[in-house]
Amino acid sequence: MFEARLSSTALLKKIVDALKEILHQSTLDCSDSGIQLQAMDNSHVSLVSMSLRSDCFEKYRCDRNLSLGLDLRSLTKVLKCASGDDAVTIKSADKADKLQLSFESASMDRTADYELRLLNLDQEHLAIPETDYACVVHMPATEFARICRDLSTFSESVVIACTKDGIKFSANGEMGSVNIKLSETSKGDVSVQVEEPVTLSFAGRYLNTFTRATPLSEKVKISMAPEVPLLVEYPIEDYGYIRYYLAPKVDE
């Protein structure tokens, strides 16, 4: 038996919004310690890894490890029927083919129960190696979203260069070019830790989809090392994270 209750549906909506652009279907792995998800997009260029500890939930019970195959578009449709301040309980019996979602209004005078058909997904698990990132940058999540949006109007490719002086985002296209540079600030909203400078090129369209997680967190952490995938991490309050990995572009 798996049962988890969140006091606010808004958090679940934000998490699903952060995943659904990249993944249409995915398996949720539930265990005693919490909920995890790991999946690549269809083109195998980016990977999303989500972790939510059990103490994020008002009530959490998971008697045995369970994998729930979800259609995220269907889940989005169900979540649209709920108000952000509803409490939500998700429930699934062992070996069940359905996920139950119950929404309870804040005034507790309305309950709505939904059943979502579970999918049998054959999902590949990847081993993400421990990486010592040469550059780690923290910045406001809204600033990162704005930069990704602004750069994607110029070019399909975005170059991220990180040095001790700061982080620079560049795009160069037919209509012209753009360079946006952020330096470390004294108020601490931008911090840059650099062991060695790194410059990598990425597909801007993926960076843009990662910024769907912006409502989850005020800050985003960007980690880079030479010739390895970029890591963009959004914390989920104090209870977990959504991490996006993106393979760098390489010259032919």
């Binding site: 590949e124 990847l126 081993a127 190696p129 090129s201 572009k249 390489v250 032919e252």
Partner: peptide, 14 residues
């Protein structure tokens, strides 16, 4: 021109 490797090249399947 540039292209992207499959992520599996960086993260081996388990």
């Amino acid at each position: 021109a540039s292209f992207q490797h499959d992520l599996i090249l960086y993260f081996p399947a388990t």
